[in-house]
Amino acid sequence: MPTAFEAAVLPHLDAAYTLARYLLRDDEDARDAVQDAYLRALRYFPGFRGGDARAWLLTIVRNTCRTRRRRERVTARTAPFDDDLHSPIESDAAPLPPAYDHIGDVSVRDAVERLPEEFREVVLLREVHGYSYREIGEIVRVPVGTVMSRLSRARQRLRDALAPSVTPTASRDPDGAAV
């Protein structure tokens, strides 16, 4: 017989896995993180005030992934997605990697996965999970204004990285009015 916890939280396993998979970029890590997150959710469940159980769960998944990545980084002594390290490379000041010259199945996803964690999570929560700025702010625990600015900067980076591939399609869009 499913418990109240299972009834409320288990239906969101796909969403939890999706977020963890894109945040951690490794399937096995994502599975472990999701299971870890569910155990944590079980402990926090008495404090769940009702409302959006999916958002509540994703908050825990996101925090679990952060903890794992931080631990990983300390262990590996590397910081592969450090904001400062990557921004000069991905900005328009540097030549774009050839992989971004076409819309392949990997390039946009690669670009998303290369975003610093703080940017990647807001992009995922917005585009993949469809949350509003306010909801993202609750999940990520930052004010709405910060969500907006992170999304904006993340998308600017993606546009810069994908410029050769995305722009031509877009400017030929009849709705684009750029005739």
């Binding site: 396993l13 796909d14 969403a15 939890a16 896995y17 999706t18 998979r21 894109y22 599975r31 999701v34 819309i103 199945d105 990997v106 390039s107 946009v108 996803r109 998303v112 992009v123 995922l124 585009e127 993949v128 999970h129 993606l158 994908l162 995305v166």
Partner: peptide
């Protein structure tokens, strides 16, 4: 492009 290439996934 993001939504196409980062689709929602099904948990295994």
């Amino acid at each position: 492009a993001i939504r196409e290439q980062c689709p929602a996934l099904s948990a295994p």
